[in-house]
Design a binder for these strands. Structure first.
Lengths: 105, 105
DNA sequence: CCAGACTGCAACCCTTAGGTTGCATTCGTC
DNA sequence: GACGAATGCAACCTAAGGGTTGCAGTCTGG
């Protein structure tokens, strides 16, 4: 079972505030300050969340003038989904095998 | 964006020890006590993790004699993967749209 | 029926994670 | 070149999460 760098991604996705940030970024790229205007948390809190998201490759920073805007990397979500799907399928397959054995096939 | 009950699942999947438990359960159903024999944590710690995993539907308890064995629900993993995939695709689509607009198509 | 094993509950410890405020710094824009 | 807006850094607070130990309860299996 290669979980590899997968767990930190899930940890990053396991926070409501970060999903709010991702959702807000879905409306278009935005800086930490801009996001702070739309979400009920401070700019610094958002900066920390963005750091976490960037760490696991869910978001990328883009300098625009004196701002640092962030963009969601959708492919990382898709990639993570595929890896999770593979694991889920693996478990289904394994359980099916166990079931067959139990039923004496 | 309907994240619904998705976030707690990711939170549950964002812990290495819980993946160890899931991996161990992949070898076959097992009780908290049995798992404690294979993993470097106490039975009670494992019991807590199992409670979390059960809470989000990743695992189900099965009484066998005086034991309570746990089984991985692979379909929940697959289901979560599909929902994540859908979100990732949505983002890709949206970014593509933004890109087209930016390029003046 | 009784001993032993397994589960369940509770209290407690410690670290981390999410959040805040405040200040320093950088870097465009005018 | 200076002002202002934005970022970055640091200290701090609090709650929650992962872990432990200990004990009570329950229930099977011989």
């Amino acid at each position: 079972m290669t979980t590899g760098t997968l767990v930190p991604v899930f940890a990053a996705l396991g926070d409501e505030t970060r999903w709010s940030i991702l959702a807000a970024l879905g409306e278009g790229d935005a800086s930490a300050s801009a996001l702070a205007g739309r979400l009920p948390v401070s700019r610094q809190a958002i900066a920390k969340h963005l750091a976490v998201l960037q760490e696991v490759g869910l978001v990328e920073p883009i300098r625009v003038g004196r701002e640092v805007q962030y963009r969601v990397i959708g492919s990382q979500l898709s990639d993570t989904a595929r890896r999770l799907e593979a694991i889920g399928a693996e478990w289904d397959r394994r359980l099916a095998t166990i079931k067959e054995i139990a039923e004496g096939l």
